[in-house]
């Protein structure tokens, strides 16, 4: 229970992963560290910079930070305007308030005009815990993926988040970066050199089944792979950190080589990673699939580990899903 005691979860323990930073913390540090190299970066906040960690950047670069108050619609359109003057506008809020509250502003002021706005949604998923469902972004990946021109990234740990932040700043055009609140295990150690937008990373090889995951469910997938190994099943685990554009090649290869795919994500059942992977599989090389996700419901207040257990986002459920396909 070391992870839970440190404010994180017990994810990754079976796989022997060390607990690391929360992805939101990694984001704040990474953005600050890029400030000199990319002088056009500015941040636009809706008064939750100490939660999203944009404040780490804002403290170092106060003249490049805007806080419009609790007004996400205005926040996103202001970011669009800044981007139209040549700025790389990083605008952040809780995933639900950014994506859900300001969706039309993202459509009209960012995606449609293809502006260089970096949307960052923290506190995604149900693992935020005690604050409860009104604060949980569980529709955001679906909403973000529905928008033309927008790159959608869901990194799994601190190192890949830092790599994702650099990638999003270097990318010309709109991006959405999904971040979590709790500390999460380190998948990649200190750095993630293989990170490339649209190119997944196979974090464990195996030929019997493929588990495609992102966010903190990559840790759960690695835990599950360990259990499956004990049962004689070799699972491939793919970190699908970019949901759009999706890495079709890796999915097709997995379908052909392993014949079964489980998708695990901290998101609603409809419209997230599972739906995107299923489209590719059905178009190319149909195989049986199963899904581990939040389902079609809102969660509740509680401790992060308890919530992940109750709503089924566990290694045990991934193992069950794999076994259901291998029967």
């Amino acid at each position: 229970m070391a992870g839970a005691a440190a404010g994180g979860t017990t994810l990754g323990e079976k796989a022997g992963l060390k607990m690391g930073q929360a992805t939101r913390d990694a984001f704040g540090d990474a953005l600050r560290d890029l400030g000199d190299e990319f002088p056009e970066i500015v941040t636009v906040d809706g008064d939750v910079g100490n939660s999203t960690r944009t404040e780490v950047f804002a403290k170092k670069y106060p003249n490049r930070a805007v806080n419009v108050g609790i007004a996400e619609s205005n926040m996103v359109s202001v970011a669009g305007g800044l981007a139209s003057t040549g700025k790389t506008a990083v605008t952040a809020s809780f995933a639900c308030f950014l994506m859900n509250n300001a969706f039309d502003q993202i459509r009209m002021s960012v995606a449609f005009p293809k502006l260089n706005v970096k949307l960052v949604g923290s506190h995604a998923g149900i693992s935020i815990g005690e604050d409860g469902p009104s604060q949980m972004g569980i529709e955001d990946v679906s909403l973000a993926c529905s928008l033309p021109n927008v790159v959608v990234m869901v990194p799994s740990d601190a190192a890949s988040t830092k790599a994702a932040v650099r990638a999003m700043i270097e990318h010309k055009g709109p991006t959405y970066l999904r971040l979590g609140r709790p500390k999460v295990p380190m998948i990649y150690g200190d750095s993630c050199k293989d990170f490339k937008i649209g190119k997944s990373i196979t974090v464990r090889d195996g030929g019997d089944v493929t588990i495609i995951a992102n966010g903190l469910m990559v840790s759960a997938a690695l835990d599950a792979a360990k259990d499956l190994e004990d049962a004689g099943i070799q699972a491939r685990v793919i970190d699908m950190h970019t949901v759009k554009p999706i890495d079709r090649d890796a999915i097709v290869k997995a379908a052909k080589e392993t014949g079964a795919i489980v998708v695990a994500e901290e998101h609603l059942h409809h419209g997230g990673l599972g739906s995107v992977v299923a489209q590719v599989v059905s178009e190319t090389h149909p195989v049986r699939m199963a899904y581990v996700d939040v389902g079609d419901c809102y969660a509740e207040s509680g401790d992060p580990d308890g919530l992940l257990q109750k709503y089924g986002l566990t290694a045990e459920n991934i193992v069950k899903a794999v076994k259901s396909l291998k029967k």
């Binding site: 805007v66 202001v78 981007a83 139209s84 700025k87």
Partner: peptide, 10 residues
């Protein structure tokens, strides 16, 4: 809002 962003940017 968009114009405000532009005014701040310049």
């Amino acid at each position: 809002s968009f114009g405000l962003g532009q005014a701040l940017g310049v």
